[in-house]
Amino acid sequence: MTEVLTQTPTVTFAKALNAAMADAMRADDSVLVFGEDVGKLGGVFRVTDSLAATFGDDRCFDTPLAESGIAGMAVGMAMNGMRPVLEMQFDAFAYPAFEQVVSHIAKMGNRTKGAIRLPLVIRIPYAGGIGGVEHHCDSSEAYYAHTPGLIVLAPASVQDAYLMLRGAIDSPDPVVFLEPKKLYFAKERVDVDELRVRYESNRDAGIGRAAIVRPGTDVTLLAYGPSVSVALAAAETAAGEGRSLEVIDLRSLVPFDDATVTAAVRRTGRVVVIAEAPGFASVASEIVARVQERCFASLAAPVRRVTGFDIPYPAPKLEKHYLPGVDRILDVVDELNWEDA
C-alpha cells in the first residue's frame, strides 16, 4: 500500500478524457459538452461524469435523441462563438449525423473562404473487442478520413486521451475524435496534473505526429486506436522468438505523419499495417499506398495488412475470429521475404 502511494496514481482512459473536458471547460467558458445521456448519467461510458454538476446544465446537457440534430446544432453554436464537444453514443449511431458532418462540418471553412471556422469536436466511442451487439462495434474511421476538411484522431494511450482531446478542443478545425471502447477502462500510471501543466504551457497535443511506442529493427508495425495494444503484444512475442519489431502508434489519421512512417520503413524495410476496420478501401489501404509510393526502393517485402475481414462486424461469440490478433500478425510477419535477407 505504501508503495502504491508513493507512485503516480492509475488513471483510466475514460477518466483522462473526462479530465481533459473538465480542464478545457475550466480554461474556456465557450466550451460546451452535449449529446445523449451526457448530463446526469455522465454518458453510457461515464466519460462526461460530473461535468453537468460541476459546470451547470448550460455547459453540459442532454439533447433530444437525434444525432443529426446534435451535429447540426453544433454547427450553429460554433458559428456563434462556442466550442462544442459532442458525444455520439456509439460509432454506428453517429451515421444519422453523416450529412451534417460531410456536407457542412467538413466544408464550412472552405465554403466561406475561412470566414466561418467550426472549432468543434465529435467524440465517437468506436471499434470492437467488447462483446457488443450489432451497431456497437463499427470501425468507421475511413468515412471520416476520406472526407476532406476533418481532422481525425484515434488515441491509444491514457496520456494521449488527455492531451489529444485537449488539443482537439483547442483546434480551430473540426475534429472527429475516435475513442477505442475497449480501452475506456484500461488503466495506466499517468499524472494528469502534470499533463495539464505541460499542455497548458506548450499547447502540444501531438496532433499530426505518430509516436514510436516500441523501438525495433526488423519490421515496422503501424497501428492506431484499438490495434496498438495488439501490435505491442505481437512485438513482445516476436522478441521472445528473436525478431525485433518496431511499433508505431499513428495517433493522428488526418493529418497523417508521413515523415515518421517513412523514416521508420526506410530503416526496417518491412512493414505491416494493423487495423480493425474491414481492409477494403480502408485507412489501412491508404497507408499501404503511401508507404509503397514513398519507400519502394527501401522495401524488402510487400507491404502487408492485417485488418478485419470485409464483412459486417460479427456477433460477440464470433468477434475473436474477426479481430486482428497476435497470431495473425506474426503469421504475416513470417511471410515477409526473410529467405532473401
Binding site: G76, M79, N80
Partner: peptide
C-alpha cells in the same frame, strides 16, 4: 442540402440564448 440549415439556425439561436 435541404433542411440542414434549419439546425444551424437552431445552434446560432442556442448560443445566443446561452
Amino acid at each position: 442540402p435541404l433542411a440542414t440549415q434549419l439546425l444551424h439556425a437552431v445552434g446560432v439561436a442556442h448560443a445566443a440564448k446561452l
